[in-house]
């Protein structure tokens, strides 16, 4: 399992990195933690002639509370995100998600930026970013722009990011204080991608649901925003009936494939079960349980 050869670059600044990405175009690939890219290169599904390693770019690391948001540098590893007090305080679903991604060694190398930029529907963070309404900060030769996680994913390995753009950071708007959250993932074993998974964020006001977001992992060509399912919870007490209805609506938008995780019908059903369980858990947490 030896990848095709390539030239290795380790730019010392973001500008230099952007310049190299522009220079090598389709023959270049950005290397973050490498734990999606290197496996693809070993299989020769990816054969870039130039790897642009972001390793030296400390300005792309770190987690910062900016008031309304937490801003997470693209090169922040999953393990660093798991250990962050800032993230745990404002947005505990992030740590809950990291814990069901791969294993400790992979999380030491794998970055948040790589996980969300990759465009693999099996990655867990895209759905969580959709549920959180996160914003991706991209930098290209013409400067910086921001684009929402919702709408970023167009198809398998096809995203809104232009080939000459670098993802520099992810802005996560803080969910309402006291919100409930859950990421429920069905997998066959440690290190497995989801058979189906659901991210839920919700908030209550006077016992009624005032805010809800639901997104699904690995049951379609991209992570899916289950907007109708989330809307159906608003104004309800999120009782069993409301939970079941939302799970039904979430299942309706699923378009999984049959593979080693199971047949289409099973995976769609499991997306419903994960949604149902995630809502129930989020509700308990919103109530302070």
């Amino acid at each position: 399992m030896i990848p095709a050869n390539f030239d290795y670059h380790r730019p010392a600044s973001v500008d230099e990195a952007v310049g190299l990405i522009e220079q090598y175009g389709d023959d270049g690939a950005i290397l973050a933690g490498g734990h999606s890219l290197i496996p693809m290169m070993k299989l020769r599904f990816a054969t870039p002639g130039h790897l642009i390693d972001l390793k030296a770019l400390d300005e792309l690391r770190g987690i910062e509370d900016t008031g309304a948001d937490i801003r997470i540098g693209a090169m922040t590893t999953q393990a660093e995100l798991r250990a962050s007090a800032v993230a745990a305080e404002a947005c505990p679903i992030l740590a809950e998600t990291v814990d069901v991604i791969a294993d400790p060694q992979v999380r030491n190398m794998g970055t948040l930026g790589g996980n969300v930029a990759n465009g693999d529907p099996g990655n867990d963070m895209p759905a969580v970013m959709m549920a959180l309404g996160a914003i991706y900060v991209l930098r290209g030769p013409g400067g910086e722009r921001e684009t929402p996680a919702n709408g970023f994913y167009k198809g398998i390995f096809d995203t809104e990011r232009a080939a000459n753009e670098l993802l520099v950071a992810i802005r996560v708007p803080k969910p309402p204080a006291g919100h409930g959250y859950a990421y429920k993932k069905l997998k066959r074993k440690v290190g497995d991608y989801a058979t189906a998974a659901a991210a839920v964020i919700l908030a209550l006001e006077g016992g009624a649901c005032s805010h809800a977001a639901i997104a699904l992992t690995n049951v379609g060509p991209t992570a899916l925003n289950a907007g109708d399912a989330a809307k159906s919870l608003i104004g309800t007490s999120v009782d069993g009936e409301a939970q079941a209805r939302a799970a039904e609506l979430a299942m309706e938008i699923c378009d999984p494939v049959s593979d080693m995780h199971g047949p289409v019908e099973y995976r769609r059903n499991m997306a419903g079960v994960m949604t149902y369980r995630a809502i129930a858990e989020a509700l308990g947490r919103a109530k302070g349980g």
């Binding site: 399992m1 290795y8 380790r10 290397l31 490498g34 734990h35 290197i38 496996p39 070993k42 790897l51 390693d53 390793k55 393990a79 294993d103 400790p104 060694q105 992979v106 030491n108 190398m109 290190g191």
Partner: peptide, 26 residues
């Protein structure tokens, strides 16, 4: 050789990594 088994685990800069999924240049 596919980042699953952990037999290749070494310490890199104070962290456990799977050395079958890290280039020597990294």
């Amino acid at each position: 050789e596919t980042s699953h088994c952990g037999a290749c685990t070494v310490d890199l800069d104070g962290k456990s990594v799977k050395s079958c999924t890290v280039f020597a240049v990294q």
